[in-house]
Design a protein around this nucleic acid. Structure first.
Lengths: 228, 228
DNA sequence: TTATGGATTTGTGTATACACTAATTGACAT
DNA sequence: ATGTCAATTAGTGTATACACAAATCCATAA
C-alpha cells in the first residue's frame, strides 16, 4: 500500500513542492478513507514513507489542520480528524444548503453553453446507473456539481462549495453504495435539471437541498445499520 | 509599528506554539489592513520581527496560504492576498448568501434564551449609532452575526460562516465609515429582528441578504470614489 | 501487591545549515 | 549604445540537529 502511494506521488514529480505533493497525497488518502478517522499521523513515519524529511511532512500536516482534515492532539501527535455522527450530519446539512444556494444562482446566471454541458453530463449518467457503476457515477457526480458551482459565476463561492464538498467525499462514496441510492440520486438530478430548464431557481434550490439531505439520510441509515 | 505588534504577540506568550502566535498576529494584521494586500512577506524579515527563526514563520505563512489570506508568488516570496474588486464582490455576495442561510435556520431553531440575547445585543447597538462609534458598532456587529451563527445549532456551518466573514473584516470596517451607513445598517438589523420575532425565516433571510449586499454596495461606492 | 518517583524513551517544536532556483547586475561583444 | 550571457546574490525549499515536554516503564519502598 505504502509503495503504491509512493509511486502515485512520484508520478507527478515535476516542479511541484514536496510539501504540496505530500499534502495532496494525504488529502486523497483521507478523502478516500484509506486513512481512517482517528489514525495517528507521526511525522517521522510519514517522512520515511514519502522518502522526505520531517520538514515538508510537517508543513503538509499543519496545512491539513487548517483545512480541517487533521486535528492537533496536544503534544501527542496529530490524528486524522475524527468526526462524530452529529458533525457529519452538520456538514451534510451545510453542504445541502450551499449546493441549494449554488444551483439557485446558477439557474439564473448560467450561459446556454454551460446549460448544454450540464445536460450532456446528466444524460451520460443514465448508463452508469444502469451498469450500476458506482465509481463512474461518483466521478460524474463530482463533475455535475462542480459544473453548477462554476455556473454561479462567483469563483469564491465555487471554491467554498468545492471545499465543503471535498470534505464529505469519503462519506458520499459510502452512501452511494446503499441499495438503489444511485438510481434515486439520478432521479433527483433529473428533477433538478427540469427546474433549471424552466429557469426556476427557487425550485431547483429546494430540490437540490432535498437531494443532498436524502444522501445524508442514506448515510445515516448506513451508519445506524453498522453501529446499531 | 513593528514594536507595537511584537508586544502584542508577547502579551499572550503562554503555552501557545510560536508558529500559532505568529499566524494569529499576521492574521490580525491582514484583517485590520495593517498589512496591505500585495505586500511582500519575506520569511527572514518576519522571523527577525518576531524574534524567531524562519521555521515557525514559514509554517504560519503556509497556513495562511491555505486559509486564503496569503498568495504564493512562484519563487518570488509570498504576498498578502491581492484581491480584485470582482473577487471582493464575489466574497460579499457569498457572505450575503451564507448569512441569509444562517438567519433562516437560526429563526427556526434558536432557543428563547438565544433570541433574548440577540434582542439585548440589538437594543444596545442603538446608542453606538447615536454616538457614531464605528469601532464599538463594528465589534457589536461581529457579535450580532456570530450569535446568529450559533443559533443555527450547526457548528460546522457556524465555522464556515465565521471564516468567510473574517476574510471580509478589513473591508467591512472601511465600508462602515461611509456616510450614514451605520444608521442604515442598524435599521436593516431592526427589520431582520422583526422577521425573526415573527418566526418568518424566509423573510429574515431575504432581509439579511439585502443587508449584506447593501454593505457591499457601500464598499463599492467607496472604492469607485477613491479610484475613479 | 501497589503506589510513587525518577529515568528513559518517544515525538513534537524550533533553530540552523545546506541546496537549488531564479533574478539581477555587470561585463563583453556587436 | 545596446543586447546577451555569465556570475553573483537573494531567497525559497529541504534536511538535519538540538531542545523540550510528555508519557511510559522500571525500580524501590510502603
Amino acid at each position: 500500500m505504502a509503495e503504491v502511494l509512493k509511486v502515485a506521488v512520484d508520478a507527478e514529480d515535476d516542479g511541484g513542492l514536496l510539501s504540496d505533493r505530500i499534502r495532496n497525497a494525504l488529502t486523497d488518502e483521507i478523502a478516500s478513507g484509506a486513512l481512517v478517522a482517528g489514525s495517528a499521523l507521526e511525522e517521522q513515519q510519514l517522512a520515511d514513507r514519502f522518502g522526505a524529511s520531517r520538514t515538508p511532512v510537517r508543513e503538509a500536516l499543519r496545512q491539513l489542520v487548517v483545512s480541517g482534515l487533521v486535528e492537533v492532539r496536544g503534544r501527542r501527535g496529530l490524528v486524522v480528524a475524527r468526526m462524530t455522527p452529529e458533525r457529519i450530519m452538520d456538514m451534510f446539512e451545510t453542504s445541502a444548503e450551499v449546493e441549494a444556494m449554488c444551483v439557485r444562482l446558477a439557474t439564473y446566471r448560467m450561459t446556454p453553453l454551460e446549460r448544454s454541458h450540464l445536460i450532456e453530463l446528466h444524460d451520460a449518467s443514465l448508463q452508469m446507473v444502469e451498469a450500476n457503476d458506482v465509481d463512474a457515477y461518483d466521478a460524474f457526480n463530482r463533475e455535475f456539481h462542480e459544473c453548477i458551482y462554476r455556473a454561479t459565476h462567483n469563483s469564491f463561492l465555487a471554491e467554498q462549495a468545492q471545499d465543503v464538498r471535498s470534505r464529505l467525499s469519503a462519506f458520499r462514496r459510502t452512501q452511494l453504495r446503499q441499495g438503489d441510492r444511485i438510481r434515486k440520486s439520478r432521479d433527483e438530478h433529473d428533477a433538478i435539471m427540469q427546474a433549471i430548464a424552466e429557469g426556476d431557481g427557487e425550485t431547483a434550490a429546494r430540490r437540490m437541498r432535498a437531494h443532498m439531505l436524502n444522501a445524508a439520510s442514506a448515510l445515516r441509515r448506513y451508519i445506524d445499520d453498522r453501529l446499531g
